[in-house]
Design a protein around this nucleic acid. Sequence first.
DNA 1: GGGCGTACACTTTTT
DNA 2: GTGTACGCCC
Length: 804
Amino acid sequence: MQENIKNEFLAAKRRLFDKVYGEFLNPEQRRAVFTTEGPVLVLAGAGSGKTTVLVNRIAYIIKYGNAYFSDNLPEGVDADTVEALSAAYQLPPEEISEILPQFIEHSCPPWQVLAFTFTNKAAGEIKDRLLTTFEDSAVASSIWAGTFHSVCLRILRKYGERLGYKPGFSIYDTDDQKRMVIDCMKALDIDEKRLAPKAVLAAISSAKDKLQHPDDMDVGSDPRGRDIRAIYNLYEQEMMRNNAVDFDDIIMRTVELLQDEDDIREYYQRKFKYVLVDEYQDTNYAQFVLTALLSDGTRNIMVVGDDDQSIYRFRGATVENILNFDKTYPEATVIKLEQNYRSTANILGAANAVIANNSDRHNKSLWCDKGDGERILVKEAFDQNDEGRYIIEKITKWVIEEKRRYSDFAVLYRVNALGRSLQTTFAKSGIPYRIVGDMGFYDRKEVKDMIAYLSVVASTGDNLRLKRILNEPKRKIGKATEEAVEQLAQMNGLSMYALMERAAEFPALEKSKEKLLSFVALIEDVRGNAGLPSEMIKYVFERSGYHQMLVAEGREGETKTEHVMELVSAALEYEKRMEESEEEPTLMGFLEEVFLISDVDKYDDTADAVVLMTVHAAKGLEFPVVFLAGMEDGIFPSEQNRMEEAEMSEERRLCYVAITRAKERLIVTYAKSRMMYGRTVWGRLSSFIREEVPDRFKEEDRPRREPPRQYGGYQRAQYRGGSSVSREFSRPPEINTAGSAKKSGPSGYGVEKLPVGARVRHATFGDGVILSSKDMGGDVLYEVRFDSGVTKRLMATFAKLQKI
DNA sequence: GGGCGTACACTTTTT
DNA sequence: GTGTACGCCC
C-alpha cells in the first residue's frame, strides 16, 4: 500500500468522523470525544453539553476504539462508513471495502469501559443511549457504568472474602452506623453527653474518606480526639464482626483490596482500557485514589467536572482533585467547555454574578448565544403559605396560557424542611407533583424491621440487625436475655445467631432457650423457603407474627402494613426490572438497591408532574422553569455556614447550581415571615440575590393584602384573586397515563381494575383519586392521591379500594 | 419483661 | 412540632 494513499484514507476517515460528530458537537466537544488516549481533564461549565460528550465518547470508544488518532480503521466497518469514505475519496465502495481491513484497529469491547456517574439514574441514561446507538442490549449491559458505590460494591461482592468478609455481608446506613457508634461508646464507657455520637460518626466518616484507619489519625494529645480514635477502633472491629460495611467502607475497602492484592489490581487494570469519571469536582480522596488505581493500566482516564459546582465538601469532596489533575497527570489534555446551551443570557448572567464573588476558583465564564430571555422574577411573599400559593398560581397560569406540561416546572430549595411545608400547599392545589428526598419509606420502622429480617437471613453474622428484630414482634426475649447472648457470643467468638443455635449448651440460657431456638427456627424456615425477594418479604411478614402484631394495633397498624406492602411492590418492581435485563433477581441484589438507590434515582421524569427537591438533589438536572423558594438570609445561605469563608463559598456554588438548572425562566421567592420548627422567623431576601445587578430582575407586586397584626391568634389567611385560581385547582389533575395503560383487564383477584382518574374510597385515608395503576404479579399497584393531600401507593388486594 | 409517661433533641446538604 | 430514649412502675 502506498504511503500517500494511506494518508489520504486517514484524512478521509477523520473528515468522516468530524462530519458524523460535527453535526451536533462543537469543536471543543469533538476534541473531548476523540481524545481517547491518555489522561483528559474536561472542565465543563453548567449546561455545556457534558452529558452529550460523555455518552458520545463512550459510544465512539466502543465503536471505533482509538481509530481517530491511530493509523487504522476499526473492525466491522459498516456500510455507512464505506459509503461515506467512498464519497469522500471518490472511490467505488468495493475498492474501499477491499483496502479498509489493512487499516483495522480493534474497536473496544464494552466491558473494557468503566464510567463513574454521580447517580444511578445517569448511569441508566448512558446505558439507554448505548442501547439506541447499538441496538444491542449486550453492549449496554456489559459496560460498567454506575456510581462509585455500586461499582465498588460489585468488586467487593466478588473479592470481599480476601478482606475477611463473608458472602452476603450487610450494608449499614447512617442509622445503623449511629447505633453502632452508640454501642461502641457504651462499651468504652464514654458519655454520650460529653461526646455526641453524631460528631464521632462524622469524624469516622471523614477519616475513611481520607483512607485513614484509627492509627493514621493525627489526634495528638487531644482527649476528645483520642476518644474518637478509640471508638473508631472498636467500630472497625465490630463492623467486621457483624460482617457489615458502611457507605464509606464500600469505597475505602475496595481501594485497600486493589492496593494490597496484586492479582486483583492487575486484573482490573488489564480489564479497564478506558475510565471515565463524571462530576469529578465532587469526588473525595478515597475516590481519587480509586480512579487512579483502576485506570493505571492504560492511563486512559477522562474526568469531567466543574469546580464551580462542587457542593459536597461536607461529605469529604475536595476540589483539589480537579484543580490538581494536571499535576497528577502532567501529560493530561485539558479541554474547556464554556458554551452554555441550556439557559438564557439573563439566567446565565445571574449565575455568573453569584459565582464571581468566590475568590477560590478557576476563572472561567460561561457564555451563550441565546437571547436575554425573560427577566428573573423576584417575589416577596408574606409567609410560606403565600409563597406556596404564588408558585401554584404561576404554574397553573403557565400551564393554561403557555400550554406547558407540569413536568416543565421544578421547585428547588436549600433544606428539606421547606419541601415539607410547600408540600401541604401543593397537596391542596390538585396539581400533580412529586417530592424528592422526603423521608422515604425505607426510613420507617416497620420497613427497616423487614429489611433487618432479610439481612439476618442473608447474613447471620449481622448482630446489629438481629438485635433489632429479636424481640420485634414481642417474643418475650428481653434485654437480659439479649445481653446474655451477646456476652456469651463474644466470649466464644461466635455471632449471636450462631450462639443462639447452640442455646441448649449454655446453662445461662436455660430459661430462654426455647424462645431463642424458635427464633432460629423462624430464620431457617425463611431461608428454606427462599424464593423471590417479594415473596420472602411477604413470608417473613406473616411467619414472624409481624403482620399479626400490626393487625392488633388497629388503624395505625393498617398504615404500617401498607408501608410493608410498598416494600413488596418495590421488590416486585426490582424483579420485573431484572427480568427485563435478563438478570437473576436475588435478595442481595434487592437489598443493595434499597441502600444504594437514592431518591433522585427513583424520581420518574416521564410523569407529568411538578417536582420538588433540594438543590443538591437537582444537580445534573435541568428544567424549563425553575422556582427557587425560600431565598432568605439564614436559609440560603444557611445560617450555619455564614461565618466561615470556605463554607460561604460552597453556599455560593450551591446557589450557582440552583440558578443554572433553569433553561427559560427563573423565579426567586422568599417569605417575610416563615414558620419553621414551630417558630416564626422574619427574613429578608438572600444576600446572593441582593448582590446582583438589579436590572436583571423584575419584582413582582407585593401581595395585596393586609399583613396580620399579631401571631398566634386565629388568622385565616386569605388570598385575593384566589377565587378564579381555586376553580382551576379543582380540575382533576392531569397525569401522564401513557406508561400505565398497557395491560388492563381483570387483575386475577376478582376485583375490577379501576381506571386512572377514578374516585375511590379507602377505609383509613378517605376519598381520593387514582393517579396511576400498574399490573404487578397478578395484583395491581395503584397510586392514589387522597383529598387529605397524601399520595399513597397501594396494592389492590390490601387497600380494598371502593369506587365511588 | 413490658408498657407508659416524660424529657429532650432535632433540622443543612447525601451515598 | 415530632420522634425517640430512658426511666419508672406494674
